[in-house]
Amino acid sequence: MASETSMTAAACETHPARRSSLGWLPWVVLAVFGSVLVAGGNFLLREYRPNSTLTQCLPALDALWGFAALFLILTGLGRVRVLMGRELATFFQSPLAYILAGLYFLITSIPVFFSTGGFDYVDATASTKAIVDASGFLMLLVAPIVTMRLLAEEKASGSMEILVTDPVTDWDIVLGKFLAAVLCLVAMVLPLGLYVVLFAMMRKSSDPALEWGVISTATVGLICLLAFYASVGLLASALSKNQVVSALIGLVALFMIFVLGVVLPHLFSQLSGELGPKLKSMAEAISLRKRLDVLLEGQLDLKSIFLFVSTTVLMLYFSVRAVESRKWR
């Protein structure tokens, strides 16, 4: 063992501080440096190429960079990174990941054919929307399966006891697992990008141009949705020891959120009087379905993004409380 130093605060000898305090810095520097680059790029594009496709996509690209920077800063926390790494390794080691990803790719491909009527005429923008739409729905089923083992397995095997008695906080645990889940889901969606590339290549000069603005905000919407699904799935996993039970909890919760988002506005619109439209607009304001639709229209609606982000953070907070519940149960 390395030489022991006596701490002034401590009555007896403890081991020397071994944590490298610099661990966080490179990631933050990277995030800040990247942000400066992105801001500069924004300025230059707006100034010199105000009409280019890239400029149209700027708001969405900025939002994507925002997510990436947040991710960098969070993974900069060494313990979060370690936990996330193990989770990702476990996920990509299991055949389940590839089976799910394959099935997912196949099923989401179906709307491409329906919306395009084969590949004769490609309305790429409409197809992209259809894909994001279908992904949003299909992920409802897939996300809980991806997230079910995150905390439930640790609790069932008892390794939770080791995890929470190691020097990590409950937030570290939840964040590490959440980021891993989001990365897994994003990795499963990524192959769909191939279609967009395909559309771009197949476009004839007579066809309408690809609306990159719409495609980029749709991507932002999809990532928001995936993060939200991951957080709900994680909470479900924190609530049960049994993986199947936690998958079911997640599935039912997500399905209810989805259905309420569709059904409530419709229901309220049937109401007569002044109350009906008011309630309808309220229900639509918090309906994730409607919020996603707004993003699919190619409008980078900050309210929508805020709704997704805040509900995700709320779910993570509940997950932390659920992990903590060992203390007061």
């Binding site: 071994r18 490298s20 370690v82 193990r86 476990t90 080691q93 008892g158 080791i162």
Partner: peptide, 28 residues
């Protein structure tokens, strides 16, 4: 702390597990 029945991650290799725990404990 070593809990009863020593719960480990069965899918990891021994050195991977040790390295994971060491990093959790903040070892360079």
């Amino acid at each position: 702390y070593m809990p009863e029945n020593v719960p480990l991650y069965p899918n990891l290799r021994v050195n991977e597990y040790l390295s994971y725990r060491a990093r959790l404990k903040g070892l360079g």
